[in-house]
Design a protein around this nucleic acid. Sequence first.
DNA 1: TGTACATCAGTGAACGCGCGTTCACTGATGTAC
DNA 2: TGTACATCAGTGAACGCGCGTTCACTGATGTAC
Lengths: 200, 200
Amino acid sequence: MVGKVEERRKDLRDRLIRIAERHIEEEGLSAVKARALATEADCSVGAIYNVFDDLQDIMIAVNGRTFQSLGAHVAKALKGKTNLPPTDRLIVMSHAYMDYAALHPNLWRALFGLRMSTDMQVPQWYLDELARLFGYISGPVSECFPDFDAEEVDLMTRTLFSSVHGIVLLGLENRISAVPEAQLEYMIALLLRSATQKKN
Amino acid sequence: MVGKVEERRKDLRDRLIRIAERHIEEEGLSAVKARALATEADCSVGAIYNVFDDLQDIMIAVNGRTFQSLGAHVAKALKGKTNLPPTDRLIVMSHAYMDYAALHPNLWRALFGLRMSTDMQVPQWYLDELARLFGYISGPVSECFPDFDAEEVDLMTRTLFSSVHGIVLLGLENRISAVPEAQLEYMIALLLRSATQKKN
DNA sequence: TGTACATCAGTGAACGCGCGTTCACTGATGTAC
DNA sequence: TGTACATCAGTGAACGCGCGTTCACTGATGTAC
């Protein structure tokens, strides 16, 4: 029965992560507060510090889950589309990316908004997930540019990802200058078609 | 001599804006603190509230100056380049944009990081400056795509701006994944050439 | 020019709030014998 | 199985800090006569 205690620790960790996730989703990163978490998790404030180093630790854990679900979302959109031309696959992925961002804007922003303090290394899973996302993209990219070497493919991959990210970011941000989602999708497709078109 | 008092008010306003600007430039938006400003401006904390509604007011004022200087930076880079092909002019502008962001990362971030509270309208000068920046871009864009109507040009303008913005953002952010500036410039040029190249 | 008065810039201590984190304590769980 | 003991999860009041904003007060500046 050594596991009984360990099990409760894990359970509390999980509950706290879920609650923090909901708070971030609803009100952003700054909505992660010790007292609120404790109340909702039905534990004391101090208990949080038994299973996490500090609040930032929880935010990182939430970002981990977000990365997973973002990846799954993109993968799902791509399912059964493997025989589409590469440009179209890029478009499908980008639309899925935008879709996810629109569906969970605060979780999505949290991925980029969590300032890692300078002394702390970026956690390994973060780099792994990033590599996995880029892996999705670099396949179609190298198909679009058959005469590119690996380095050029990598560069183009980053370029296209950053561009799509920028479009989604400014598009979803400015609710004032109000670009409807359908138009964002169109902008993305426009860019990707222009950028990957064969220039004979 | 009615102006004596008015003059001192304006002087204090100006001094506070400069000081806030320096703080933002050095440590980001959150470095704007009432007590620090007062100490450096050699006035009392309360005096700040005589010339500004609140601290956010000062940040908005700083963003105003930043917008001006960003615009000037781009305009300067463009000077004497009016006879370049449109794609090259877009590249020059984008490089100037990146250049400014790299030179003043915190001021640049502050432009986008200042969450306007939902009840407050976006100030008019903000929209004006944005329109002015987009004006620089839409000229070359419509040259690149002569058969686009105004709406399509506008869309492409936003698309390209957002894309370049995204490249600069992620490029300068991840000091870890460390993309050197020269490579960023290359990425931008790559994207713009691909996106604006004549097809067929 | 001189005097009385009004205005309002300027002051800075104090208010008020939010919040992360700690710590002395308690009691449940698990272990040793 | 039973008892004494050790460990450590769990508690929540209290600490400590940062900070925006206010407000009763003062004194300089400008006005009216």
